[in-house]
């Protein structure tokens, strides 16, 4: 009977089964812990805090998710904001830093890709700067910029620039000479050649770099917000950990994954739009 279903349908069924098993095992593992905590009055007294910090069962996480997602944008003071607001802050930082990086990386990558001299001149700087963990810039950024919001954006800028820069340069340098020759024999100027031939030819490689960058930026924003504090999903995770509210921690971890997936999917869509077959 299963064989009559398509590959996708079978995979979907398997996914649901795996999820159900995982949640069941998780749910089943929790009460044993609780029961152990209920042994004596004394243990309950000293274990009270530990009890609260125990891993919550999935049912609790789902209940929490339902509560949070049904009112995602409430704002009850600096330490109590809806998940939607926190994610909004993170997305704003990520997209601002990312767009600034794209504005620098794509034109600069074009230049590097078109000119072997520029490539050789800039390569040593790129090679030294690229392996630096973006968070290592944080103290310097905080000191120079004197603003935690801007510092977080700067860290996103730094981490997203490299994949875009290198992929743009690589894509532009790799444009088939025959296509450039088509532009030359049609007497296209430098600007028109760049926009009508080189950009579409290199677009798949450039967008691949953009997709890698957005993934890294979303990874880094969580850590950056844990450091700078105040707002954002990273701060939210850290804050709930300080409150020992593990249900919220797990819920926000899931939200980080879902938003990351959505960002990646959007760039996947863009990638399909600019793809071409030779």
């Amino acid at each position: 009977m299963l064989t009559s279903l398509s590959l996708n349908q079978r995979a979907a069924i398997l996914s649901v089964v795996l999820l159900a098993i995982g949640l069941l095992v998780w749910e089943a593992a929790i009460p044993a812990q609780k029961a152990a905590g209920e042994l004596t009055e004394y243990e309950r007294l000293i274990g009270g805090a530990a009890q609260k910090a125990g891993i919550p069962p999935p049912s609790e996480v789902i209940a929490k998710a339902w509560a949070e997602l049904s009112n995602p944008f409430y704002d009850a003071g600096p330490n109590d904001k809806g998940i939607g607001i926190q994610i909004g802050y993170s997305l704003f930082r990520v997209l601002t830093g990312y767009l600034l990086a794209a504005l620098v990386a794509v034109p600069l990558g074009f230049l590097i890709g078109m000119s072997p001299v520029a490539y050789r001149a800039l390569n040593p700087f790129i090679q030294v700067l690229r392996p630096i963990s973006p968070l290592a810039w944080m103290p310097l950024a905080l000191f120079v910029i004197q603003d935690s919001q801007m510092s977080a954006i700067f860290v996103i800028f730094v981490c997203s620039i490299w994949p875009m820069l290198l992929n743009t340069a690589f894509g532009v340098a790799g444009v088939r000479q025959d296509w450039v020759n088509v532009a030359r024999t049609h007497e296209l100027g430098a600007l028109r050649t760049a926009f009508t031939v080189i950009l579409p030819a290199a677009a798949p490689t450039i967008v691949t770099g953009m997709r890698i960058s957005i993934g890294i930026a979303w990874l880094v924003i969580v850590a950056a917000e844990m450091l700078v504090g105040g707002t954002g999903i990273g701060y939210y995770v850290w804050n709930e950990w300080n409150n020992l509210d593990l249900t919220s921690v797990i819920f926000s971890i899931l939200m980080i994954g879902i938003v990351g997936m959505a960002l990646d999917a959007a760039f996947g869509q863009l990638q399909r739009a600019v793809a071409y077959a030779e």
Binding site: R176, D178, W179, N181, T185, P200, A201, V274, A277, E278
Partner: peptide, 16 residues
């Protein structure tokens, strides 16, 4: 120049 048109064996079309 546009006065000299070229057709190559392959790849003279822009694939996108």
């Amino acid at each position: 120049s546009l006065d000299r048109g070229v057709v190559f064996q392959n790849y003279s079309l822009l694939p996108w």
